[in-house]
Write a protein that binds this DNA or RNA. Structure first.
Length: 230
DNA sequence: AACAGCGTCAACCGCACTCAT
DNA sequence: TATGAGTGCGGTTGACGCTGT
């Protein structure tokens, strides 16, 4: 291994960003706005590809990027979101203001993966025996519109606040989505270590995606994403 | 002090997706 | 409808620092 490492050390160093490059990129975005990453190198002379520029901006140069260790609240939220969504890092990061998908992913792989490796896997509790029956059930119609969100004793105040924000999204979900399959889906998620179903504390997209994936409704999930978050 | 092993994190890579033409 | 450019995303890699021996 170390033999390998020494050999690798002779290879060119990874192309780390220099402060002057950061400055150039920052100036470019302030002038031209985000996007058009392919033209960055042409207009600025940066020896970087569009993808590299985009990544650097998104992960490090953007305003309001939060650096440093994760708080307990953030860690708690990451664990819970990961239980529900799996490795959907951008989605998880979207619920952590100032955090990027790359950072969340790294944090998970380095800190949380070990912590949670012993935790039970997600399981789905479905009132119906299978997906085919999902579409036939008429018992639960648009239950989400009736969901009340009492304070969850399992969540801290900060996490609870985020959860409330998520529920705001759920309202728009109910308003915009008219999907007969979704309307009749009465699935609920519970975790081995969760006394309460977590579904009522997740946002519409999370719910939608989760339903879509577990029910094999990938296409509906995609449609939902576009409809709720244009 | 020198080395080995491991952990962390920034950056890269390849695939998938979206959208304009 | 087909196609290509641009972009987003998740997995992986590699440099470097820290710690133990």
């Amino acid at each position: 291994m170390m033999e390998n490492k020494r050999v690798k050390k002779q290879l060119p160093k990874k192309n780390l960003w220099k402060p002057e490059e950061d400055l150039i990129l920052k100036n470019y975005v302030e002038t031209h706005g985000e996007g058009n990453w392919q033209t960055v190198s042409k207009l600025t002379g940066l020896k970087r590809g569009g993808k590299s520029c985009r990544l650097r901006w998104k992960n490090y140069l953007r305003p309001n990027i939060k650096r440093g260790g994760m708080s307990q609240e953030e860690e708690d939220l990451i664990i819970r979101m990961h239980k529900l969504l799996g490795n959907r890092w951008s989605l998880i990061a979207g619920r952590l203001p100032g955090r990027t998908d790359n950072e969340v992913k790294n944090y998970w792989n380095t800190h949380l993966n070990k912590k949670t490796s012993a935790v039970g896997k997600r399981k789905r509790v479905n009132n119906n025996s299978d997906h085919q029956n999902d579409t036939k059930s008429t018992e639960t119609t648009n239950k989400t519109s009736e969901i009340q969100d009492p304070p969850n004793p399992m969540l801290s105040s900060e996490t609870q606040k985020i959860s409330n924000d998520l529920m705001d999204d759920t309202k728009s979900f109910n308003y915009k989505i008219e999907n007969p399959i979704m309307a009749t889906n009465s699935s609920t998620f519970v975790f081995d270590d969760e006394p309460l179903p977590i579904i009522t504390y997740m946002d519409s997209f999370v719910c939608f995606e989760a339903f879509g994936h577990t029910a094999g409704l990938e296409n509906h999930a995609k449609i939902g994403r576009q409809s709720v978050f244009p």
